[in-house]
Nucleic acid binder design. Sequence first.
DNA 1: CGGGAAAAACAAAGCGCTTTGGAAACTGTG
DNA 2: CACAGTTTCCAAAGCGCTTTGTTTTTCCCG
Lengths: 345, 345
Amino acid sequence: MNLKQLSETLGLSQTTVSRALNGYPEVAEITRQRVEAAAQVHGYSPNTRAKGLATGRAMSIGHVIPISTKHEMVNPVFADFIAGAGEHYSRSGYEMHLSVVSDADEARSYRQLAAKRNVDGVIIHSPRIHDPRLSLLREIGLPFLVHGRDSGATAPYSWLDVNNRRAFGRATAFLLDLGHRRIALINGLEYMDFAVRRRDGYLRALTERNVRPDPALMQSDEMTEPNGHDAARRMLDSPDPPTAFVVSSIISAMGVRRAIQERGLRMGADVSIIAHDDELGYFRNADEAGIPIFTATRSSVRQAGRQAAEMLLSIIERPDLAPMSRLFEAELTLGRSTGPRREGG
Amino acid sequence: MNLKQLSETLGLSQTTVSRALNGYPEVAEITRQRVEAAAQVHGYSPNTRAKGLATGRAMSIGHVIPISTKHEMVNPVFADFIAGAGEHYSRSGYEMHLSVVSDADEARSYRQLAAKRNVDGVIIHSPRIHDPRLSLLREIGLPFLVHGRDSGATAPYSWLDVNNRRAFGRATAFLLDLGHRRIALINGLEYMDFAVRRRDGYLRALTERNVRPDPALMQSDEMTEPNGHDAARRMLDSPDPPTAFVVSSIISAMGVRRAIQERGLRMGADVSIIAHDDELGYFRNADEAGIPIFTATRSSVRQAGRQAAEMLLSIIERPDLAPMSRLFEAELTLGRSTGPRREGG
DNA sequence: CGGGAAAAACAAAGCGCTTTGGAAACTGTG
DNA sequence: CACAGTTTCCAAAGCGCTTTGTTTTTCCCG
């Protein structure tokens, strides 16, 4: 059923039916209700392509998911972020367009998205430092919002981020307060902006307390369980092992915990861990009693997705607005994985 | 730049340019090259909405991601499946349309997808038994492919699945061969078809060896790390604990491992685990030496995504074809998590 | 009851593409 | 050189919607 057929059924013109459905004031309330009822009955929804062609709006947001060519891996937080964003899109009548591309094709992918008029805007994930996507999108004039920040950017842009520096500073300070001095950092890849900020926070907290950072205790890699395990294993087996870990992800933290337990050490009692918790659905950081397994800097990536969607849509609706940004603080939640440094530890 | 402008630049009609770009034989090779070069230079790509309107094809595939209202959780294998499917879509000139909906809105979501002509087909994830989506889609005439199967379906349909019954039968038999008799099953939610099949395989293997299944050793829940831990903890603390576990996911298996280690037991030596491994990017089941951490029934969900996309596209291109299906076998890979039953275990 | 303003409905153009049916420009041949 | 047969290109219609500009209908009041 299309608009023409529906209007014939109703004995009205296409114009009137269209206006009725789109809530224009020029049509009598009684007519509108008649039209809406008929649309309901016949299961009519306007053809997206036709509507988009007529309005010039795609009513669709693009997410370009790069595949790390190195490990062919999808960033696990995408799923939750996208779930959050998707919720808001549906509520607002937008759709979600996904492109999965190898990082080599990323630029081309964005250009096509714009040229084909597939989307009204895009969300940029995991920005790097001096991320070329920002200038590219500015050049092609596609509205965008960055999830994260780009410390190297020269022009203003809209973003949404968690205060990574503060979070990791607090986590490190907390461990220092517990008496730890050998504190390791298991970080994400440090060409990512968030990873640099986290390291900054970590380093600042150490130096503020006159603890000299040790490169041997700093690791930067993809945040997988095996990588976390591997790094922790190496550090724990070294002559002067860490007594605490600050870890950029719950997933790597599970690897760290494994390394700890393999060595007969007890997490919390012998070795402490603070992890960053994105509140991924399948890794709820809580035991049966509801107590966090890991002491964590917590910030829901799902919630970030929702807010990012909301911000991007308002940017699209009012392009004249100045770039907007939102920074939220991560919560430091006490769990079972931290404790005072043991004598001799 | 649109078609009209491009054709004016070239001094050709829109018809000719369109045909040239779409590879029709009616246009001279020399002209085609000229047109293609110009398109390249001006960065021309046809407007998707206009093209879709004219052809009646959306060139887009829908994935409806249901959010479990119970736990607000996104199935973690989606990300990898979608990555695989997305790869194939881009290669074939298709796009990917994602809808995130609470399971209550699922039916409406599919109807809208069809009515708005947003997509040419959809992939159904995680089918249940007597899944209402199959008949719904048949009713509205939207081509679809099921990732998994629906044992309760009455009419034929196209699907792609891993041989869950066989995989879990083999895993269980393998443990029996190692001398285990108390074998637990940590399964996914058993209204999902795959979970039922896995239980079937498990039960069949037990009864074939005259081992009586024990309901206390069978758990069915969402496959999260805490759930795996919780179930394993309860079972291990029971008077007659299991000496081995068959687990439906690497993620829950990590919880099982945690419970084992907490009790001072050694995985492999004291308690065995076989897990199903979807080969998720961030949980590569391998240690530094490349040896699997968990003995596993392995089947790449990413690869499944690729193949599912391929199958669905061919169904769309030739709707007259009979329903097609593909069943692959999971590989049983030996890792460090299994060993013979210990005396007294 | 007539006239003008407000309300309600409409016809048609246009969004950017594909595609049908046809015209023009080349071929080669008798 | 004329003619049929190819090649090569084109004008225009149509996809299903929105929206502009207009017409028709209704309403109110002097």
